[in-house]
């Protein structure tokens, strides 16, 4: 039994780590802008395509940093063009704008690639096979959880110890007061998008090393699941998002192991609905009270 479950468990932990890297982007943006950034999943996909095209021209060690930089640029551009003009608009307008951006990015990627699935380049070392016990898996499966935890620890340190981290915390507590206290709101928001996109780019390298084929809509599902992970953990909370992502990744693969593959996606949403009904603030979310 353990022998049979082990590969699923391993891939669950690995995919959980990849969801976690995307989920952090969601949860940070939500914490600050109160916006579900529907385009985040597509930025993740775009990072995949950047890699496909850049690795065709450059060696992989050079390509990875370039991919990260381009993804960050894309993320910040999306914020500047599509969210910033709507800063004073109702929240729903911004959400609609995010859906519009997602639609645009998907169509743009379809146009550039001609709608065909692209083969993700093989990255030396992390695409190698390793054997653990009875299971054979890729190196990336083992690297992902470690790398995820290191990156998240670094991020938490930034948020707790540095000045920009303090500004972020202030902005997520109270947008307007933070502004009055002289915090440059736009640079804080840009930083949030830089971090979110950076982690999404890393997540995309890990994810596509595992699932090797990139299509324009491939990011939608991991994106939504990462969002559920963020809600599950308590939106706005980074450790919550990470734990939520690991739980979702593992459960999803256990469901696959039991033979209900059709429901592995549905499970995530069922979990979301249960959480929203019984504990809408998630595992680690802050309580908010609504004023009239």
């Amino acid at each position: 039994m353990i022998d049979k479950m082990l590969p699923y468990l391993l891939s669950g932990i690995s995919v959980g780590g990849q969801y976690a890297l995307i989920a952090v982007g969601y949860t940070m943006v939500y914490g600050i802008l109160r916006l579900i950034n529907f385009a985040h999943g597509d930025i993740f996909t775009a990072a995949g395509f950047f890699m496909v095209y850049i690795a065709a021209a450059l060696p992989v060690p050079l390509a990875i940093p370039l991919v990260v930089i381009l993804t960050v640029l894309l993320g910040v551009t999306v914020e500047r063009v599509a969210y910033k003009p709507l800063r004073s608009a109702p929240r729903m307008s911004v959400m609609i704008s995010a859906i519009g951006v997602s639609y645009l990015l998907q169509n743009l990627m379809w146009y550039v690639t001609g709608g065909l699935a692209k083969q993700y380049p093989v990255i030396p070392w992390i695409s190698d096979s390793v054997t653990i016990g009875s299971a054979t898996t890729k190196m990336v499966t083992l690297i992902t959880p470690v790398l995820t935890i290191l990156l998240v620890l670094a991020l938490v340190t930034i948020i707790q110890k540095t000045k920009i981290g303090m500004a972020m915390r202030a902005v997520s507590k109270d947008f307007e007061t933070a502004q009055l206290m002289g915090i440059k709101i736009n640079s804080v928001i840009s930083t949030t998008f830089v971090i979110g996109s950076l982690l999404a780019a890393v997540g995309s390298v890990l994810y596509f090393s595992n699932y090797t084929s990139v299509t324009p809509t491939v990011g939608a599902m991991p994106g939504l699941k990462a969002f559920v992970a963020a809600v599950f953990g308590g939106i706005g909370s980074i450790p919550g998002a990470v734990i939520g992502a690991f739980i979702i990744g593992i459960c999803e693969n256990i469901i696959k192991a039991l033979g209900y593959t059709t429901f592995s996606d549905a499970f995530t949403f069922a979990l979301l609905i249960v959480i929203l009904l019984f504990k809408p603030t998630g595992l680690f979310g802050e309580k908010t009270s609504e004023k009239v």
Partner: peptide, 16 residues
Amino acid sequence: DYLAIATLGFAEIIRA
């Protein structure tokens, strides 16, 4: 937005 994401989730569940 919680309503939005929950209804989106139900649509996915129905499809599954």
